[in-house]
Design a protein around this nucleic acid. Structure first.
Lengths: 240, 240
DNA sequence: ACCACTAAATGAATGCCATTCATTTATGAC
DNA sequence: GTCATAAATGAATGGCATTCATTTAGTGGT
Protein backbone atom coordinates (compact mmCIF):
# COMPACT_ATOMS: atom_id res chain seq x y z
CA UNK A 1 0.00 0.00 0.00
CA UNK A 2 1.16 3.44 -0.77
CA UNK A 3 2.87 5.58 1.75
CA UNK A 4 2.25 9.15 2.61
CA UNK A 5 4.92 11.29 1.12
CA UNK A 6 4.75 14.91 2.06
CA UNK A 7 2.07 16.60 0.07
CA UNK A 8 3.42 18.63 -2.71
CA UNK A 9 1.47 21.73 -3.10
CA UNK A 10 -1.93 23.11 -2.51
CA UNK A 11 -4.02 20.11 -1.76
CA UNK A 12 -7.36 21.24 -0.63
CA UNK A 13 -6.80 22.84 2.70
CA UNK A 14 -9.46 22.53 5.24
CA UNK A 15 -11.91 24.53 7.11
CA UNK A 16 -13.52 27.79 6.56
CA UNK A 17 -12.11 29.85 3.86
CA UNK A 18 -11.97 29.38 0.13
CA UNK A 19 -8.69 31.20 0.04
CA UNK A 20 -8.11 32.91 -3.24
CA UNK A 21 -6.09 30.88 -5.62
CA UNK A 22 -3.29 29.43 -3.63
CA UNK A 23 -0.73 29.34 -6.34
CA UNK A 24 2.31 29.85 -4.25
CA UNK A 25 4.44 32.43 -5.91
CA UNK A 26 7.88 32.08 -4.48
CA UNK A 27 8.44 35.16 -2.48
CA UNK A 28 12.05 34.78 -1.60
CA UNK A 29 13.25 37.83 0.15
CA UNK A 30 12.16 40.06 2.91
CA UNK A 31 8.82 41.69 2.72
CA UNK A 32 7.40 44.54 4.66
CA UNK A 33 4.08 44.39 6.33
CA UNK A 34 1.29 44.64 3.88
CA UNK A 35 -2.13 43.50 2.89
CA UNK A 36 -4.26 41.13 0.82
CA UNK A 37 -2.88 40.80 -2.67
CA UNK A 38 0.56 40.22 -1.32
CA UNK A 39 -0.49 38.02 1.59
CA UNK A 40 2.07 35.32 2.16
CA UNK A 41 0.22 33.04 4.51
CA UNK A 42 -3.01 31.14 4.47
CA UNK A 43 -4.07 27.81 5.91
CA UNK A 44 -3.15 25.86 2.79
CA UNK A 45 0.35 27.26 2.75
CA UNK A 46 0.79 26.60 6.46
CA UNK A 47 -0.46 23.05 6.09
CA UNK A 48 1.89 22.14 3.31
CA UNK A 49 4.84 23.76 5.06
CA UNK A 50 4.00 21.77 8.20
CA UNK A 51 3.89 18.56 6.20
CA UNK A 52 7.22 19.31 4.63
CA UNK A 53 8.73 20.00 8.02
CA UNK A 54 7.30 16.82 9.51
CA UNK A 55 8.60 14.82 6.58
CA UNK A 56 12.06 16.20 7.09
CA UNK A 57 12.47 16.42 10.86
CA UNK A 58 9.54 14.51 12.32
CA UNK A 59 7.05 15.84 14.82
CA UNK A 60 9.77 16.96 17.22
CA UNK A 61 10.86 19.33 14.49
CA UNK A 62 7.43 20.83 14.12
CA UNK A 63 7.54 23.96 16.24
CA UNK A 64 5.82 27.23 15.56
CA UNK A 65 9.22 28.87 15.29
CA UNK A 66 10.53 26.32 12.79
CA UNK A 67 7.31 26.50 10.82
CA UNK A 68 7.54 30.28 10.63
CA UNK A 69 11.19 30.13 9.67
CA UNK A 70 10.44 27.73 6.83
CA UNK A 71 7.98 30.31 5.53
CA UNK A 72 10.28 33.32 6.05
CA UNK A 73 7.89 34.83 8.48
CA UNK A 74 7.79 35.72 12.16
CA UNK A 75 6.26 33.11 14.47
CA UNK A 76 3.57 35.51 15.56
CA UNK A 77 2.41 35.92 11.96
CA UNK A 78 1.07 32.37 12.03
CA UNK A 79 -1.47 33.35 14.63
CA UNK A 80 -3.30 35.50 12.14
CA UNK A 81 -4.35 32.28 10.40
CA UNK A 82 -4.46 29.61 13.08
CA UNK A 83 -5.51 29.90 16.67
CA UNK A 84 -2.91 27.56 18.09
CA UNK A 85 -0.44 24.85 17.31
CA UNK A 86 -3.22 22.36 17.90
CA UNK A 87 -4.97 24.04 14.99
CA UNK A 88 -2.00 23.31 12.77
CA UNK A 89 -2.17 19.67 13.78
CA UNK A 90 -5.84 19.58 12.89
CA UNK A 91 -5.12 21.01 9.45
CA UNK A 92 -2.46 18.38 8.89
CA UNK A 93 -4.71 15.60 10.12
CA UNK A 94 -7.49 16.62 7.80
CA UNK A 95 -5.15 16.71 4.88
CA UNK A 96 -3.96 13.20 5.66
CA UNK A 97 -7.55 11.97 5.82
CA UNK A 98 -7.89 12.96 2.18
CA UNK A 99 -5.06 10.57 1.34
CA UNK A 100 -6.87 7.55 2.75
CA UNK A 101 -8.09 5.28 0.01
CA UNK A 102 -11.86 4.88 0.01
CA UNK A 103 -12.12 4.22 -3.71
CA UNK A 104 -13.25 0.61 -3.29
CA UNK A 105 -16.51 1.55 -1.64
CA UNK A 106 -19.25 1.21 -4.19
CA UNK A 107 -16.85 -0.49 -6.58
CA UNK A 108 -16.92 -4.00 -5.20
CA UNK A 109 -17.93 -6.17 -2.25
CA UNK A 110 -18.14 -4.30 1.05
CA UNK A 111 -15.62 -6.47 2.85
CA UNK A 112 -13.01 -5.90 0.18
CA UNK A 113 -13.64 -2.16 0.40
CA UNK A 114 -13.24 -2.22 4.17
CA UNK A 115 -10.02 -4.15 3.84
CA UNK A 116 -8.53 -1.70 1.40
CA UNK A 117 -9.67 1.30 3.41
CA UNK A 118 -8.34 -0.09 6.68
CA UNK A 119 -4.89 -0.95 5.35
CA UNK A 120 -4.58 2.43 3.70
CA UNK A 121 -5.81 4.25 6.80
CA UNK A 122 -3.31 2.42 8.99
CA UNK A 123 -0.44 3.06 6.58
CA UNK A 124 -1.11 6.76 6.37
CA UNK A 125 -1.30 7.30 10.11
CA UNK A 126 1.48 4.95 11.10
CA UNK A 127 3.77 7.69 9.86
CA UNK A 128 1.86 10.28 11.87
CA UNK A 129 1.12 8.65 15.21
CA UNK A 130 1.42 11.91 17.14
CA UNK A 131 -1.80 12.94 15.42
CA UNK A 132 -3.78 10.01 16.77
CA UNK A 133 -4.57 11.61 20.11
CA UNK A 134 -5.76 14.60 18.10
CA UNK A 135 -8.05 12.74 15.71
CA UNK A 136 -9.48 10.36 18.22
CA UNK A 137 -11.08 13.20 20.06
CA UNK A 138 -11.67 15.74 17.28
CA UNK A 139 -15.23 16.81 16.46
CA UNK A 140 -15.92 15.94 12.84
CA UNK A 141 -17.07 19.48 12.23
CA UNK A 142 -13.48 20.67 12.45
CA UNK A 143 -12.24 18.24 9.81
CA UNK A 144 -14.17 18.29 6.53
CA UNK A 145 -12.01 15.77 4.70
CA UNK A 146 -12.24 13.37 7.59
CA UNK A 147 -15.98 13.80 7.58
CA UNK A 148 -16.04 13.12 3.85
CA UNK A 149 -14.23 9.85 4.49
CA UNK A 150 -16.82 8.84 7.07
CA UNK A 151 -19.58 9.67 4.64
CA UNK A 152 -18.14 7.38 1.98
CA UNK A 153 -17.66 4.53 4.43
CA UNK A 154 -21.13 5.01 5.89
CA UNK A 155 -22.68 4.89 2.46
CA UNK A 156 -20.73 1.76 1.65
CA UNK A 157 -21.89 -0.05 4.75
CA UNK A 158 -25.46 1.09 4.22
CA UNK A 159 -25.50 -0.30 0.71
CA UNK A 160 -24.02 -3.51 2.02
CA UNK A 161 -27.11 -3.92 4.13
CA UNK A 162 -25.85 -2.91 7.53
CA UNK A 163 -28.62 -1.76 9.87
CA UNK A 164 -28.40 1.99 10.38
CA UNK A 165 -27.72 1.89 14.08
CA UNK A 166 -24.77 -0.43 13.72
CA UNK A 167 -22.90 1.61 11.15
CA UNK A 168 -21.26 4.07 13.52
CA UNK A 169 -20.25 1.46 16.10
CA UNK A 170 -18.77 -0.63 13.29
CA UNK A 171 -16.73 2.27 12.00
CA UNK A 172 -15.61 3.21 15.48
CA UNK A 173 -14.53 -0.34 16.24
CA UNK A 174 -12.55 -0.55 13.02
CA UNK A 175 -11.02 2.85 13.56
CA UNK A 176 -10.00 2.05 17.11
CA UNK A 177 -8.23 -1.03 15.89
CA UNK A 178 -6.59 0.93 13.11
CA UNK A 179 -5.28 3.64 15.44
CA UNK A 180 -3.85 1.14 17.89
CA UNK A 181 -2.28 -0.79 15.05
CA UNK A 182 -0.69 2.36 13.66
CA UNK A 183 1.34 2.67 16.85
CA UNK A 184 2.31 -0.94 16.56
CA UNK A 185 3.98 -0.32 13.21
CA UNK A 186 6.36 2.17 14.79
CA UNK A 187 7.41 -0.02 17.70
CA UNK A 188 11.04 -1.11 17.84
CA UNK A 189 11.69 -4.57 16.44
CA UNK A 190 12.85 -5.99 19.75
CA UNK A 191 10.04 -4.54 21.82
CA UNK A 192 9.03 -8.01 23.02
CA UNK A 193 12.50 -9.20 23.90
CA UNK A 194 12.20 -10.14 27.57
CA UNK A 195 15.94 -9.96 28.05
CA UNK A 196 17.06 -11.02 31.50
CA UNK A 197 13.50 -11.70 32.54
CA UNK A 198 13.00 -14.51 30.07
CA UNK A 199 13.37 -17.13 32.76
CA UNK A 200 10.44 -15.81 34.74
CA UNK A 201 8.16 -15.52 31.72
CA UNK A 202 8.43 -18.89 29.98
CA UNK A 203 5.14 -18.89 28.13
CA UNK A 204 5.54 -15.38 26.82
CA UNK A 205 9.14 -16.00 25.85
CA UNK A 206 8.24 -19.18 24.00
CA UNK A 207 5.50 -17.38 22.13
CA UNK A 208 7.82 -14.57 21.11
CA UNK A 209 10.48 -16.97 19.89
CA UNK A 210 7.98 -19.05 18.03
CA UNK A 211 6.76 -16.01 16.15
CA UNK A 212 10.28 -14.82 15.48
CA UNK A 213 11.12 -18.23 14.04
CA UNK A 214 8.58 -17.62 11.31
CA UNK A 215 10.77 -14.80 10.07
CA UNK A 216 8.07 -12.42 8.98
CA UNK A 217 9.27 -9.22 7.45
CA UNK A 218 6.85 -7.05 9.32
CA UNK A 219 5.37 -8.72 12.38
CA UNK A 220 3.00 -5.80 12.82
CA UNK A 221 1.34 -6.79 9.56
CA UNK A 222 0.64 -10.29 10.85
CA UNK A 223 -1.22 -8.94 13.85
CA UNK A 224 -3.04 -6.33 11.80
CA UNK A 225 -4.16 -8.85 9.25
CA UNK A 226 -5.32 -11.25 11.90
CA UNK A 227 -7.32 -8.62 13.75
CA UNK A 228 -8.76 -7.04 10.65
CA UNK A 229 -9.99 -10.33 9.23
CA UNK A 230 -11.54 -11.17 12.56
CA UNK A 231 -13.33 -7.83 12.68
CA UNK A 232 -14.59 -8.12 9.14
CA UNK A 233 -15.88 -11.62 9.79
CA UNK A 234 -17.52 -10.41 12.96
CA UNK A 235 -19.22 -7.53 11.18
CA UNK A 236 -20.41 -9.83 8.44
CA UNK A 237 -22.08 -12.03 11.03
CA UNK A 238 -24.05 -9.10 12.37
CA UNK A 239 -25.74 -8.26 9.11
CA UNK A 240 -29.30 -9.47 8.58
CA UNK B 1 5.90 14.06 24.04
CA UNK B 2 5.46 11.22 21.73
CA UNK B 3 8.08 11.99 19.23
CA UNK B 4 10.82 9.58 19.86
CA UNK B 5 11.42 6.83 22.32
CA UNK B 6 14.29 6.85 24.64
CA UNK B 7 17.21 9.14 24.72
CA UNK B 8 20.12 7.72 26.54
CA UNK B 9 21.16 9.65 29.52
CA UNK B 10 24.07 9.19 31.83
CA UNK B 11 22.21 9.37 35.06
CA UNK B 12 20.15 6.45 36.11
CA UNK B 13 18.63 3.36 34.60
CA UNK B 14 14.89 2.97 34.82
CA UNK B 15 14.72 -0.75 34.70
CA UNK B 16 15.44 -3.51 37.11
CA UNK B 17 13.64 -2.63 40.22
CA UNK B 18 11.37 -4.90 42.18
CA UNK B 19 8.26 -3.36 40.74
CA UNK B 20 6.40 -1.97 43.61
CA UNK B 21 2.89 -1.53 44.55
CA UNK B 22 1.74 1.99 44.95
CA UNK B 23 2.09 2.18 48.69
CA UNK B 24 4.69 4.76 49.52
CA UNK B 25 6.13 2.41 52.04
CA UNK B 26 9.67 3.06 53.09
CA UNK B 27 10.97 -0.24 51.87
CA UNK B 28 14.70 0.19 51.95
CA UNK B 29 15.51 -2.47 49.42
CA UNK B 30 19.14 -3.21 49.28
CA UNK B 31 22.00 -0.96 50.16
CA UNK B 32 25.27 -1.67 48.52
CA UNK B 33 28.03 0.40 49.95
CA UNK B 34 25.19 2.60 50.78
CA UNK B 35 24.64 5.61 52.85
CA UNK B 36 21.40 7.44 53.18
CA UNK B 37 18.89 5.72 55.38
CA UNK B 38 16.96 8.95 55.58
CA UNK B 39 16.48 9.33 51.83
CA UNK B 40 13.22 11.04 51.00
CA UNK B 41 12.84 9.87 47.42
CA UNK B 42 12.78 6.60 45.60
CA UNK B 43 10.99 5.36 42.53
CA UNK B 44 8.01 4.03 44.47
CA UNK B 45 7.48 7.35 46.21
CA UNK B 46 7.80 9.23 42.94
CA UNK B 47 5.35 6.91 41.23
CA UNK B 48 2.66 7.28 43.83
CA UNK B 49 3.08 11.04 43.98
CA UNK B 50 2.77 11.18 40.21
CA UNK B 51 -0.42 9.15 40.34
CA UNK B 52 -1.87 11.40 43.00
CA UNK B 53 -1.02 14.45 40.92
CA UNK B 54 -2.52 12.97 37.77
CA UNK B 55 -5.66 12.06 39.67
CA UNK B 56 -6.04 15.59 40.90
CA UNK B 57 -4.92 17.74 37.97
CA UNK B 58 -4.68 15.41 35.00
CA UNK B 59 -1.65 14.93 32.81
CA UNK B 60 -1.32 18.63 32.13
CA UNK B 61 -0.70 19.02 35.82
CA UNK B 62 2.09 16.47 35.82
CA UNK B 63 5.24 18.54 35.54
CA UNK B 64 8.56 17.83 37.14
CA UNK B 65 8.20 21.03 39.12
CA UNK B 66 4.75 20.13 40.41
CA UNK B 67 5.85 16.61 41.18
CA UNK B 68 8.81 17.91 43.17
CA UNK B 69 6.64 20.43 44.99
CA UNK B 70 4.19 17.72 46.02
CA UNK B 71 7.12 15.90 47.59
CA UNK B 72 8.64 18.99 49.20
CA UNK B 73 11.76 18.62 47.19
CA UNK B 74 13.63 20.53 44.53
CA UNK B 75 12.90 19.53 40.92
CA UNK B 76 16.48 18.57 40.34
CA UNK B 77 16.32 16.06 43.18
CA UNK B 78 14.04 13.87 41.09
CA UNK B 79 16.83 13.30 38.63
CA UNK B 80 18.77 11.29 41.16
CA UNK B 81 16.11 8.59 40.84
CA UNK B 82 14.74 8.99 37.37
CA UNK B 83 16.50 9.81 34.14
CA UNK B 84 13.75 11.90 32.60
CA UNK B 85 10.10 12.74 32.73
CA UNK B 86 9.56 9.93 30.24
CA UNK B 87 10.91 7.64 32.93
CA UNK B 88 8.25 8.83 35.34
CA UNK B 89 5.61 8.02 32.75
CA UNK B 90 7.04 4.53 32.38
CA UNK B 91 6.87 3.99 36.12
CA UNK B 92 3.25 5.10 36.16
CA UNK B 93 2.40 2.93 33.19
CA UNK B 94 3.90 -0.12 34.77
CA UNK B 95 1.99 0.46 37.96
CA UNK B 96 -1.26 0.71 36.03
CA UNK B 97 -0.51 -2.56 34.28
CA UNK B 98 -0.60 -4.22 37.67
CA UNK B 99 -4.19 -3.00 38.09
CA UNK B 100 -5.42 -4.80 34.98
CA UNK B 101 -7.51 -7.81 35.86
CA UNK B 102 -6.03 -11.06 34.57
CA UNK B 103 -7.56 -13.20 37.28
CA UNK B 104 -9.89 -15.05 34.94
CA UNK B 105 -7.07 -16.70 33.02
CA UNK B 106 -6.80 -20.28 34.18
CA UNK B 107 -10.04 -19.93 36.10
CA UNK B 108 -12.54 -20.41 33.29
CA UNK B 109 -12.96 -20.58 29.54
CA UNK B 110 -10.36 -18.62 27.58
CA UNK B 111 -12.84 -16.38 25.81
CA UNK B 112 -14.38 -15.29 29.08
CA UNK B 113 -10.92 -14.54 30.44
CA UNK B 114 -10.05 -12.48 27.39
CA UNK B 115 -13.30 -10.57 27.71
CA UNK B 116 -12.69 -9.69 31.34
CA UNK B 117 -9.07 -8.77 30.72
CA UNK B 118 -9.90 -6.59 27.72
CA UNK B 119 -12.63 -4.60 29.46
CA UNK B 120 -10.47 -4.07 32.49
CA UNK B 121 -7.46 -3.06 30.39
CA UNK B 122 -9.52 -0.54 28.46
CA UNK B 123 -11.08 0.90 31.59
CA UNK B 124 -7.75 1.41 33.31
CA UNK B 125 -6.13 3.15 30.38
CA UNK B 126 -9.10 5.18 29.27
CA UNK B 127 -8.29 7.36 32.28
CA UNK B 128 -4.64 7.52 31.20
CA UNK B 129 -4.66 7.96 27.44
CA UNK B 130 -1.53 10.13 27.43
CA UNK B 131 0.35 6.98 28.39
CA UNK B 132 -0.74 5.06 25.32
CA UNK B 133 1.93 6.47 23.04
CA UNK B 134 4.41 5.48 25.75
CA UNK B 135 3.26 1.88 26.21
CA UNK B 136 2.69 1.12 22.59
CA UNK B 137 6.36 1.54 21.90
CA UNK B 138 7.92 0.56 25.22
CA UNK B 139 10.27 -2.44 25.38
CA UNK B 140 8.80 -4.97 27.80
CA UNK B 141 12.12 -5.10 29.61
CA UNK B 142 11.47 -1.66 31.05
CA UNK B 143 8.09 -2.63 32.48
CA UNK B 144 8.07 -5.73 34.66
CA UNK B 145 4.42 -5.60 35.66
CA UNK B 146 3.39 -5.18 32.06
CA UNK B 147 5.54 -8.15 31.18
CA UNK B 148 3.90 -10.16 33.95
CA UNK B 149 0.52 -9.38 32.44
CA UNK B 150 1.69 -10.63 29.05
CA UNK B 151 2.97 -13.81 30.66
CA UNK B 152 -0.40 -14.55 32.22
CA UNK B 153 -2.26 -13.90 29.00
CA UNK B 154 0.22 -15.94 26.98
CA UNK B 155 -0.15 -18.87 29.32
CA UNK B 156 -3.93 -18.61 29.15
CA UNK B 157 -3.97 -18.69 25.37
CA UNK B 158 -1.47 -21.52 25.28
CA UNK B 159 -3.63 -23.62 27.56
CA UNK B 160 -6.62 -22.79 25.41
CA UNK B 161 -4.87 -24.51 22.55
CA UNK B 162 -3.64 -21.56 20.55
CA UNK B 163 -0.67 -22.41 18.34
CA UNK B 164 2.47 -20.82 19.72
CA UNK B 165 3.18 -18.57 16.78
CA UNK B 166 -0.28 -17.01 16.87
CA UNK B 167 -0.23 -16.03 20.51
CA UNK B 168 1.73 -12.80 20.16
CA UNK B 169 -0.16 -11.58 17.09
CA UNK B 170 -3.43 -12.30 18.89
CA UNK B 171 -2.37 -10.32 21.92
CA UNK B 172 -1.11 -7.47 19.77
CA UNK B 173 -4.34 -7.32 17.81
CA UNK B 174 -6.40 -7.25 20.98
CA UNK B 175 -4.16 -4.67 22.57
CA UNK B 176 -4.26 -2.42 19.52
CA UNK B 177 -8.02 -2.49 19.62
CA UNK B 178 -7.99 -1.81 23.35
CA UNK B 179 -5.70 1.21 23.05
CA UNK B 180 -7.73 2.75 20.26
CA UNK B 181 -10.91 2.13 22.19
CA UNK B 182 -9.47 3.77 25.30
CA UNK B 183 -9.25 7.04 23.36
CA UNK B 184 -12.79 6.58 22.21
CA UNK B 185 -14.05 6.59 25.79
CA UNK B 186 -12.65 10.08 26.32
CA UNK B 187 -14.11 11.61 23.18
CA UNK B 188 -16.71 14.36 23.61
CA UNK B 189 -20.28 13.16 23.34
CA UNK B 190 -21.06 15.23 20.27
CA UNK B 191 -17.91 14.32 18.39
CA UNK B 192 -19.96 12.93 15.49
CA UNK B 193 -22.33 15.85 15.19
CA UNK B 194 -21.88 17.00 11.61
CA UNK B 195 -23.36 20.40 12.39
CA UNK B 196 -23.78 22.58 9.35
CA UNK B 197 -22.32 19.91 7.12
CA UNK B 198 -25.14 17.47 7.73
CA UNK B 199 -26.70 18.23 4.36
CA UNK B 200 -23.63 17.13 2.46
CA UNK B 201 -23.19 13.93 4.47
CA UNK B 202 -26.61 12.30 4.42
CA UNK B 203 -25.59 8.71 5.02
CA UNK B 204 -23.26 9.51 7.86
CA UNK B 205 -25.79 11.86 9.43
CA UNK B 206 -28.55 9.26 9.24
CA UNK B 207 -26.29 6.67 10.84
CA UNK B 208 -25.36 9.01 13.68
CA UNK B 209 -28.98 9.90 14.36
CA UNK B 210 -30.06 6.32 14.21
CA UNK B 211 -27.52 5.37 16.84
CA UNK B 212 -28.41 8.36 18.99
CA UNK B 213 -32.07 7.32 18.85
CA UNK B 214 -31.14 4.13 20.67
CA UNK B 215 -30.20 6.26 23.65
CA UNK B 216 -27.27 4.23 24.86
CA UNK B 217 -25.75 5.40 28.06
CA UNK B 218 -22.18 5.05 26.80
CA UNK B 219 -21.94 4.75 23.02
CA UNK B 220 -18.26 3.90 23.30
CA UNK B 221 -19.23 0.69 25.06
CA UNK B 222 -21.40 -0.38 22.14
CA UNK B 223 -18.51 -0.11 19.72
CA UNK B 224 -16.10 -1.75 22.12
CA UNK B 225 -18.40 -4.66 22.73
CA UNK B 226 -19.04 -5.13 19.06
CA UNK B 227 -15.37 -5.10 18.16
CA UNK B 228 -14.28 -7.25 21.06
CA UNK B 229 -16.85 -9.95 20.34
CA UNK B 230 -15.82 -9.96 16.71
CA UNK B 231 -12.17 -10.33 17.65
CA UNK B 232 -12.85 -13.13 20.10
CA UNK B 233 -14.93 -14.97 17.54
CA UNK B 234 -12.20 -14.46 14.97
CA UNK B 235 -9.55 -15.81 17.30
CA UNK B 236 -11.69 -18.81 18.16
CA UNK B 237 -11.97 -19.65 14.49
CA UNK B 238 -8.20 -19.72 14.15
CA UNK B 239 -7.64 -22.38 16.76
CA UNK B 240 -7.08 -25.92 15.57
C1' DA C 1 -8.10 61.89 -5.07
C1' DC C 2 -8.45 61.37 -0.51
C1' DC C 3 -9.10 58.88 3.67
C1' DA C 4 -10.54 55.71 7.04
C1' DC C 5 -10.68 50.98 7.83
C1' DT C 6 -8.63 46.78 8.59
C1' DA C 7 -5.97 42.39 7.44
C1' DA C 8 -1.39 40.87 7.80
C1' DA C 9 2.96 41.32 9.30
C1' DT C 10 6.65 42.51 13.05
C1' DG C 11 9.52 41.78 17.24
C1' DA C 12 9.83 42.13 21.94
C1' DA C 13 8.17 40.16 26.10
C1' DT C 14 5.92 36.49 29.12
C1' DG C 15 5.74 32.45 31.51
C1' DC C 16 6.24 27.65 31.61
C1' DC C 17 8.83 23.76 30.80
C1' DA C 18 12.55 19.85 31.30
C1' DT C 19 17.02 19.38 32.19
C1' DT C 20 22.07 20.36 33.78
C1' DC C 21 25.62 21.27 36.99
C1' DA C 22 28.58 22.93 40.57
C1' DT C 23 27.92 22.70 45.18
C1' DT C 24 26.42 21.31 49.85
C1' DT C 25 24.60 17.99 53.30
C1' DA C 26 24.33 13.92 55.91
C1' DT C 27 25.17 9.20 56.49
C1' DG C 28 27.29 4.70 57.43
C1' DA C 29 31.64 2.03 57.02
C1' DC C 30 36.13 1.82 58.55
C1' DG D 1 37.03 10.83 63.63
C1' DT D 2 37.60 10.53 58.84
C1' DC D 3 36.17 9.72 54.43
C1' DA D 4 33.68 8.27 50.34
C1' DT D 5 29.43 8.79 48.46
C1' DA D 6 24.29 8.98 47.65
C1' DA D 7 20.96 12.51 47.82
C1' DA D 8 19.50 17.10 47.84
C1' DT D 9 19.94 22.10 46.62
C1' DG D 10 19.36 26.33 43.76
C1' DA D 11 20.77 28.83 40.06
C1' DA D 12 21.17 28.78 35.22
C1' DT D 13 20.07 27.28 30.32
C1' DG D 14 17.64 26.99 26.29
C1' DG D 15 13.41 25.90 24.10
C1' DC D 16 8.69 26.31 23.76
C1' DA D 17 3.78 28.42 22.57
C1' DT D 18 1.52 32.39 22.93
C1' DT D 19 0.35 37.62 23.57
C1' DC D 20 0.37 42.30 22.36
C1' DA D 21 1.30 46.97 21.02
C1' DT D 22 2.71 48.65 16.85
C1' DT D 23 3.55 49.29 11.83
C1' DT D 24 2.37 48.81 7.07
C1' DA D 25 -0.20 48.98 2.90
C1' DG D 26 -4.23 47.64 -0.03
C1' DT D 27 -9.31 48.57 -0.63
C1' DG D 28 -13.83 50.47 -0.70
C1' DG D 29 -16.52 54.49 0.06
C1' DT D 30 -17.05 59.30 -0.73
Amino acid sequence: MLGTPPAERPTMPAAARPATDSRPSETPAKRRAGRPASAVLDQAVITSAALRLIGKNGYDGLTMAALARSLNVAPSALYNHVASKQDVLVLVEDHLASLVDVSAFGAGPWDEAVRQWAWSYRDVFSKHTPLIPVIAVLPVTDAPQTLAMYETVSEGLREAGFPQERIIPSIVALESFIFGSAYDVTAPADIFNPGSMAASTPHFTAAVESLAAQGHERPADVAFNLGLEALIAGLAAQRP
